[in-house]
């Protein structure tokens, strides 16, 4: 693999978005190429510098303000005024939806688990869209260039 091609994908490589044989191919190139290795180190250093910078804490009253604004606008009362039976029905329907979602998620999970997504999985949702993962897109980018 050429250096220019490796460099183009170092960012995604470092973010863990490239998996399988392509990842190994890049790793092998890096073992033998000091220039690209240095480039990766510089990239890592920049990302780590950014990550290390702290953000001030969120204000303690944020939730209170949000709720106050919702109540003031009347949007909070509209839903609360619905009759009890309507709310019970909505909750029951929602339980059915969740159960269905979990089932679909379990069925889909076998096929797509972890495809291109980071290992932490904190944002997993039972429903998966049809958009391709980066790993799939990456394959096509590779063959184009």
């Amino acid at each position: 693999m050429k250096c220019s091609r490796v460099r183009r994908f170092l960012s995604a490589y470092h973010d863990g978005e490239i998996a399988g044989p392509k990842r190994e191919e890049i790793a092998r190139h890096l073992e033998g190429c000091a220039v690209c290795r240095q480039e990766l180190e510089a990239l890592k250093a920049a990302v780590e510098t950014i990550r290390a910078a702290e953000v001030p804490d969120s204000p303690l009253y944020l939730a209170t303000r949000v709720l106050a604004e919702i109540r003031q606008s009347g949007a909070g009362r509209a839903a609360a005024r619905r009759p009890v039976w309507a709310r019970v029905f909505a909750s029951a329907a929602a339980v059915v939806l969740i159960a269905a979602g979990v089932w679909v998620g379990a069925m889909l999970g076998n096929g797509i688990a972890g495809s291109g997504s980071k290992a932490n999985g904190t944002n997993e949702w039972p429903f998966e869209g049809t958009e391709p993962s980066f790993a799939e897109v990456y394959e096509s980018m590779f063959t184009e260039e």
Binding site: A12, D15, E17, V47, I50, V55, S117, K118, N123, F134
Partner: peptide, 10 residues
């Protein structure tokens, strides 16, 4: 990416 650790898909 850096602070939320989101995948490219997310």
């Amino acid at each position: 990416s850096v602070y939320e650790g989101m995948s490219y898909k997310e």
